[in-house]
Design a protein around this nucleic acid. Structure first.
Lengths: 342, 342
DNA sequence: TTGCGAGATGTTCACGTAAACAATTACCAC
DNA sequence: GTGGTAATTGTTTACGTGAACATCTCGCAA
């Protein structure tokens, strides 16, 4: 495995090189490259031929320096390991590609104040025209999130507060429907396995769950706090088994629901015979869990699409339009929920 | 929701502005910005203060134009929706951040010849110093994959062939161990649910499975072709149930294994009592499937790390070192496999 | 023939940065 | 004091592009 030197990093041919070969000015080459009118057909052909000959590739840096546009969207994300973030990123990437933009991902290793500031600083140096922040922590405050340069920003999945453009799924309604579904089946109360306390989504879903119970005159039982992982769902599932009096559980995501069901199975409990379970997310796998999981479907593709749409509008019009856009969620009833026994 | 105009897109302060305020030359500002030696302490402080005052942010485009380096890595990927791709991207992003590079994602909507060429063209215009191609199709040929500008490239998960730097998990060994595990338990043969034919990984795993059987004098049964999804696993699972004579199944990923197990449960078959199942990937959820899935663990984080390591070396030394690096896989035995009945 | 407009093409310049080189200063040994 | 050296700071320039402006050519009407 011997490395051999690359054939002289000739910094690709420039417009000037093309111009020389084609016998025109570099400005004419620029016009051809940008598909402007006012170029004679024969000249255009000659330039295109010259481009091929010298292997011309536009220099992105120079173009960006000149135009002030990078044709790229920055995405700040805390983790790619959750189903929702990944799906949203996927959709953002697809939507950006359609408007001829690329996506630059900046991962924040740890959502504490220091690293967040650092990421913003790093970001502001980045070659992007706008930013999508996918950030579930609700500890961001206004000052923290303000970007230099007045860069257009869209926030996903956070309580960024007024002044920001926010796109999110309608988590409140989803959590409400999930809880109501269980109550309507006849369960006396519904226990909740939540996401971590620092997560805005987790808080939001928990609040909606509690409100739904209270509206029916039920005092919500204590929240069981997980961390989104299957493992934490399993651990909490064992606690639930130990209590012995729980008939309905609403988990804040499908993975924790899965972990909990595993604990129930191990204890010999039937789902939904002995205990009903509802999740949140509607992962691809959820329909094949055992039993197939009743859960709340979120349209992450739509979230990504709306992010780019809002962002591009802000970039192009150079205006800022704060506001919150909610993408509907819907309850998908499968086989993990049923009326309580007796 | 009325949009109000942004306060004059002042193209952030430049080094010249900082220089004026600090009373130094712009070159000195440059030296401070790049943390060079040979700047008087007092001067440095004055410049830093001036930077804060005018809100200076380095202009990435100008810097890239001047240095020829973008501090960014391009990642070409067909889909982010598979567990492995997402994990690999996650690791690449983390590893790139450590060497102060960002990651630009380019998603190819559809891995046909035309779109691939298009993506390469788009890519070559991009502001990246090197490229990672995560591309499972084995239909890429040498000509297709050659990038202009002699850009450094690392290929993941593909049979890109000689001349490329390839990083991959040791899928052959993983598939071999999975198959051998089932045979060692006493199963007479092992059926295989494969990924789609166009996938190199799928082909690789299937070949290794077949070879392992043949080495023991067993003629491999027909391959059951899926498409990685849980749904396809379920569909094939029903076919397996219909046959009635299958005792061991090796699925090319965990999701298809999950789908198959669902079909088995529905048919009243016990896993592993009546039929053993092995997956591939070791998703986070797999340990909580019912039963917990025996599967092949792949270290995607290591793959991502090695990609960036190789790529950075090629970028920095300007050499090209083709070769294939394999990251070990390991069989994780859980509860979905057992000796056959009787 | 002359003049004029429209289209095609060329020239100049600035975007913000950092390398290369030049100039200035301070200090020290003799 | 003188010469020399090292540290610090300044000046000039080019990276590749595209906007603004200038020039040129041609066809056609007066």
């Amino acid at each position: 495995m011997t490395g051999h030197p690359r054939p002289e990093t000739r910094r690709g041919a420039s417009m000037a090189d093309v111009a020389k070969v084609a016998g025109v000015s570099s400005q004419t080459v620029s016009r051809v490259a940008n598909d402007k009118a006012n170029v004679d057909h024969a000249t255009r052909e000659r330039v295109l031929e010259a481009m091929r000959e010298v292997g011309y590739q536009p220099n992105h840096a120079a173009r960006a320096l000149r135009t002030g546009r990078f044709k790229s969207i920055g995405v700040i994300v805390f983790t790619l390991s959750t189903f929702g973030n990944m799906r949203t990123l996927d959709a953002i990437t697809a939507a950006a590609a359609e408007v001829d933009h690329t996506v630059t991902v900046i991962r924040i290793p740890d959502p504490t104040r220091g690293t967040v500031s650092g990421a913003y600083r790093r970001l502001s140096e980045q070659a992007v025209d706008g930013v999508v922040i996918i950030f579930e922590a609700h500890l961001l405050d206004r000052a923290e999130i303000t970007l230099p340069n007045d860069q257009p920003v869209v926030v996903v999945d956070s309580n960024a507060g007024d002044g920001f453009t926010v796109v999110d799924t309608d988590q409140a309604t989803g959590a409400r429907e999930a809880t109501a579904h269980l109550l309507d089946l006849g369960h006396e109360t519904v226990w909740h396995i939540s996401g971590p306390e620092a997560s805005f989504s987790a808080l939001h879903r928990a609040e909606s769950w509690a409100a739904t119970l209270r509206e029916r005159g039920i005092t919500p039982p204590p929240i069981l706090v997980g961390d989104w992982t299957t493992d934490s769902g399993y651990r909490i599932g064992r606690e639930i088994v130990a209590r012995g009096d729980v008939t309905a559980v609403f988990a804040a995501n499908d993975q924790m629901a899965l972990g909990a069901m595993t604990a129930f199975h191990e204890a010999g409990l039937q789902v939904p015979g002995d205990i009903s379970v509802v999740g949140f997310d509607d992962m691809d796998e959820s329909k094949a869990f055992w039993p197939p999981l009743t859960t709340v479907h979120q349209d992450f593709a739509e979230v990504g699409r709306l992010c780019i749409q809002s962002l591009m509008r802000e970039i192009e019009t150079k205006t800022h339009t704060p506001g919150r856009t909610l993408v509907p969620t819907r309850l998908v009833v499968r086989d993990s929920t049923a009326a309580p026994k007796g």
